[in-house]
């Protein structure tokens, strides 16, 4: 009798757990996997002048036969095309490079902010947190546009520097890669600060006191205690900045110059100018693989380390 009740409760809790896990999986299926399958399918087709501008289009009326019929016409030609022109490889490489450098700068700028917030009196913290989130209240596009006014030759920054006598000729920043870095660091800073803050805030302050009591200088205590304990925050922040930065289109388009080569712009050109949806889709699929594969490998590595520890 007792056992029966126990096993019933067990089944119930298992069901509940499954239901709970099913929600995020359904979410991923609907908003990640399904769009990906559609994009992948388009990447296997070829361009034609029609609505939609590619073929073959699956004939759902014929059921499975229609799908199979379409599948026979699919080919990987568009992926082969990507390897034949160095521009795609260069664009991927330069996107990764720009995203990597921008992420590093964001980390260097964001860490002291997060650290200061976590060490601030408890009563201030909600206000500080609010200030970090505040920029989200205006449109992202307008905030990026505002940088044009600041960075242009006759802009705010140059006027201030020239009136202070620090420079005699205006600095050319707008329409260069430097402006792209500024734009990315500015736009993504909250995504770096928030996870850093949440990991630093949880840290037990007595650990630092203990280190100092044992004669450890503050700087060393920071490197040996604070930094290692905030690693999860650093990783989360870097991913949150790096991943969207790689595919960024708006910032390089508005602030970048002619020589700024990023995969987001290449994708735009393929999709809008060449009207080549299949090649644009292939570019997108490859971008996804470039991002997902290293991240999955990295997480595996992390898990192994954790298990070993």
């Amino acid at each position: 009798m007792d056992r029966e009740v126990h096993s019933q409760a067990y089944t119930k809790s298992r069901l509940g757990r499954w239901a709970l896990i099913a929600v995020p999986y359904a979410w991923l299926l609907l908003f990640f996997l399904a769009p990906f399958v559609i994009v992948f399918k388009i990447s296997l087709s070829e361009v034609v002048v029609s609505i939609p501008p590619y073929q073959p289009v699956i004939d759902w009326a014929n059921g499975l036969a229609g799908v199979l019929d379409t599948a026979r016409q699919w080919s990987f030609d568009n992926y082969i095309w990507l390897t034949q022109d160095a521009i795609y490889f260069k664009a991927y490489l330069s996107s990764l490079q720009i995203a990597l450098i921008a992420t590093a700068i964001t980390l260097v700028v964001g860490y002291p902010i997060a650290y200061g917030m976590a060490r601030a009196p408890k009563a201030w913290q909600p206000t500080l947190l609010m200030l970090i989130i505040l920029p989200f209240w205006t449109s992202f596009l307008i905030r990026v546009y505002a940088w044009i006014g600041i960075l242009k030759n006759e802009g705010l920054l140059n006027q201030v520097l020239m009136s202070l006598g620090l420079i005699s000729d205006p600095l050319i920043i707008l329409n260069t890669n430097a402006a792209v870095y500024i734009g990315i660091v500015y736009s993504y800073l909250p995504f770096m600060v928030l996870p850093l803050y949440s990991s630093l805030e949880k840290m037990d302050g007595s650990l630092i006191e203990a280190a100092e009591d044992l004669g450890c200088p503050p700087m060393k205590a920071f490197w040996q205690v604070t930094i290692p304990l905030s690693v999860p925050g650093i990783i989360a922040g870097c991913f949150l900045v790096f991943i969207p930065a790689v595919g960024e289109f708006v910032i390089p388009d508005i602030l970048g110059g002619s020589e700024t080569l990023m995969i987001g712009k290449t994708l735009w050109v393929e999709f809008f100018r060449n009207r080549d949806w299949p090649v644009a889709s292939a570019v997108a699929v490859v971008l996804l693989l470039i991002l997902v594969i290293p991240i999955v490998l990295f997480q595996r590595q992390q898990e192994k380390q954790r298990e070993a520890a």
Partner: peptide
Amino acid sequence: ELLETKLLT
């Protein structure tokens, strides 16, 4: 380009 994409969709 933007208009064309909407029309072709």
